[in-house]
Simulated scan of single mutants.
Amino acid sequence: MTDQTAKVAHFRALHERPEPLLLPNPWDAGTARILAGLGFEALATTSLGVANVLGRTRAGRQDVLDNCRVICRATDLPVNADLENGFADDPAEAAKMIADAFACGVAGVSIEDATADPRSPIYDFGPAVERVQAAVEANRALPVPLVLTARAENLLYGVADLDESIRRLRAFEEAGADVLYAPGLRTLDQMRAVVSSVGKPVNIVMGFADPAITLEQLAGIGVRRVSIGGGLSRLALRSFLDGAKEMRAGRFGFVSEMAPLSDLLGYFDR
């Protein structure tokens, strides 16, 4: 599947079936090809994963776009782009990033209401909705409108108010978002409350949730998409840290746990 129009249509259809879409988050061409080789149906970028690769606390606007291009070229799967807050406070300026992501070949984009300013980490309700409205307008102006995800980030930034998350998601839905997302939901009851409060597909990120929750349970409450954010990147770095610390201590037991080179090359050859 190489045509962007077909990728967008397929990505949209993957949100409309009863079975949740498992949406893993690679951070470079190699991890994208491994995930495609494992049979995943779509991919999503992770700005945290990009920042980890660059050795920074946050990736920049161009870093994120360059990564979108790399991931889109690595496989023929639909790709959802994590655009953070569009790297601008002004709604129209932030929304310009959607067209730039489209030019990279993505099938979907996500925009969030986190400011990246620790002094005031979440946009007020009104500006947050205006930003989604601007994103919807920019998306609809594209030759092929992408699947637009709107994110309410308050649970991650000290505003532990599920009602406020739902209030924002409802407003984002009314503004025209295609998919709704409140990272930081931890329990099945919280997830059920969100899903039952909106009419659009809901993305659940399992990086912050009770790991005992199963895909079957998520499907049972109506979740349509399940991602992991920077989880796989952090998992890989945990293994890297463990091995590096063992090496620093003069031991090399970790070599017995390395992925066989033949397995990796098999994914890359595809």
Rank of each mutant, 00 (worst) to 15 (best):
K7M: 07
A9F: 01
F11K: 00
R12N: 01
A13H: 08
L14P: 00
R17K: 04
R17G: 00
P18A: 00
L21A: 00
L22G: 00
L23H: 03
N25W: 00
W27A: 02
W27R: 04
A32C: 03
L38E: 15
L38I: 13
E41M: 07
A44Q: 12
V53K: 15
G55P: 15
R58W: 10
A59F: 14
G60P: 03
R61Q: 13
L65T: 12
D66T: 12
R69K: 08
R69Y: 04
V70W: 05
V70Q: 13
I71M: 02
I71Q: 00
R73T: 04
A74S: 00
V79M: 10
N85F: 15
A88M: 07
P91K: 09
A92D: 15
E93M: 06
A95V: 10
M97A: 07
C104R: 15
A107W: 07
V109R: 06
S110N: 15
I111H: 07
D117S: 10
I122Y: 06
Y123C: 06
F125H: 14
F125L: 09
V129W: 12
R131C: 03
V132G: 06
E137K: 15
A138V: 11
R140I: 07
P143L: 12
V144W: 10
V144F: 12
L146N: 14
A150Q: 04
A150D: 03
A152D: 13
L155S: 04
L155W: 10
L156H: 03
G158C: 11
V159S: 01
E164M: 08
R167H: 07
E173Y: 04
D178G: 08
V179M: 02
V179A: 03
D189T: 03
Q190W: 02
A193G: 02
S196D: 15
G199P: 01
K200T: 01
P201I: 04
V202F: 02
I204N: 06
V205K: 08
P211D: 04
T214C: 15
E216A: 15
L218S: 06
L218H: 07
G220T: 14
V223F: 14
V223G: 07
R225H: 14
S227F: 05
L232I: 14
L237Q: 09
R238M: 10
F240G: 01
K245E: 14
E246Q: 11
R248Q: 15
A249D: 09
R251L: 01
F252C: 02
S256A: 13
E257F: 02
A259K: 10
P260I: 03
L261E: 14
S262I: 09
L264Q: 13
L265R: 07
L265A: 10
G266S: 15
F268D: 06
D269H: 08
D269M: 14
